[in-house]
Write a protein that binds this DNA or RNA. Structure first.
Lengths: 106, 106
DNA sequence: CGTGTAAGGAATTCTGACACG
DNA sequence: CGTGTAAGGAATTCTGACACG
């Protein structure tokens, strides 16, 4: 045991569900992938599978796009974030704990 | 903000993916639902959607079944666990952090 | 550039049932 | 009791393309 990744990073969500979760059309989601803003995995039969991290990335993309930011710029912004690894890590943890306790299971 | 639930509890995974994740057949997964061992949600069109918690529950069910434990008993065991809420909570958190740090993103 | 849509095909999921036991 | 399977239908996803601009 030392090989698993967090639920947040597991690629298991279909494009249809991602569309509901983000409010984006499937066309838009596939287009952003084409532009390399995110990289879903593929099932055996070629179906795209996304993680919650992908969903969050898409929500960020949606917000940027609403402000008129072109995909090229959004892509650069996203790439910068990946370099702040360690610092972002702590924020991720507390974020997860908040998600856990900040509420009641509905 | 105070209404979201953890990624672990969001019902977003299709039965096909759950089948791959657990090694169980779709038939078995649907049967355990019929026996009330878990409760997936449904999409608009009636498609079942599971959470990572459901996946873990199913893995536990699979282990119990391998030992010959009947679904009725497994169901009771699962119901007992839901009553140990607060204590399990802390374990859940540390478990998440371990999943996060216990490894490298592959 | 970013996104909608119709097009045709392949794969998914659903339910109810028969089967074995 | 627990699980496999064939059956028919409905909904999903995929790709490449035309459209507007």
């Amino acid at each position: 045991v030392a090989k698993e990744i967090s639920y947040k990073e597991r690629k298991v969500i279909s494009i249809g569900v991602v569309s509901e979760l983000t409010g984006l059309s499937e066309r838009q989601i596939r287009y952003y992938e084409q532009k390399k803003l995110l990289s879903p995995e593929r099932s055996n039969k070629g179906y795209r599978k996304y993680s919650f991290v992908d969903v969050e990335t898409l929500i960020e993309i949606a917000n940027q796009r609403e402000e008129g930011v072109p995909t090229g710029e959004i892509k650069e912004e996203l790439e910068k974030k990946y370099k702040k690894g360690s610092k972002l890590h702590k924020k991720m943890i507390s974020g997860q704990i908040n998600a856990q306790f900040g509420t009641h299971k509905k």
